[in-house]
Amino acid sequence: MNAVLCFMLLGGVIYAGLHGNMEAVSQAALAGGTDALRLVLDLMGGFLFFGGVIRLLEDAGVVSALVRVLHRPLGWLFSEPLEQEAMEAITENLAANMLGVSNAATPMGIRAAKALNRAGQNTPTAALCLFLVINATSVQLVPTTVLSLRYAAGSAQPESILLPSLAASGVSTGLGILLCKLIESRRRRG
């Protein structure tokens, strides 16, 4: 990310210098911070509301209910037998991620990653690769932040993206899982 920021800032300044756009760049540089604060205000309604609702759901035991539902399909997905602790941490991480409880998801994910690398190797196992790919392709069922921004932007149908977003998310996670399985089965064969 540092390289990208460096490219955008330095590239922007140099390009503006060559094309005589420096005035606009100076103005833009100062406007950025104000825009950030405005964006936080736009997000705040959603963050406060969903923060509260998600906490309610968590305290009502919805995450642990989802953990019970996910247990069997995940066991099947991570075909090789994993130790109890790893499987539990994986399930809890994914359940929290699906519901958007990010502060619960990260510690669980770290526990899962550690449990999956008990041997202390420097290369991730097939199970760890699969777990990370699932995590990196998003499993959140309701994209609360996107929803908040769409409401704040005055959309006539803010929720019209829920189904497409879920479908696109399914495609990305599905392809990720498929590729992992293909690569591993190829490696095993030779």
Binding site: G11, A28, L48, G51, R55
Partner: peptide, 30 residues
């Protein structure tokens, strides 16, 4: 939960400032 949401929103503010400044500069330069 709302407190956590508030803290999360304020927590990402500095990162949003850095990225928005970069994006604005990049756009304005042409």
């Amino acid at each position: 939960g709302a407190k956590e949401g508030f803290e999360n929103a304020m927590g990402i503010m500095p990162a949003l400032a850095v990225t928005l400044i970069s994006i604005r500069v990049f756009e304005a330069s042409g």
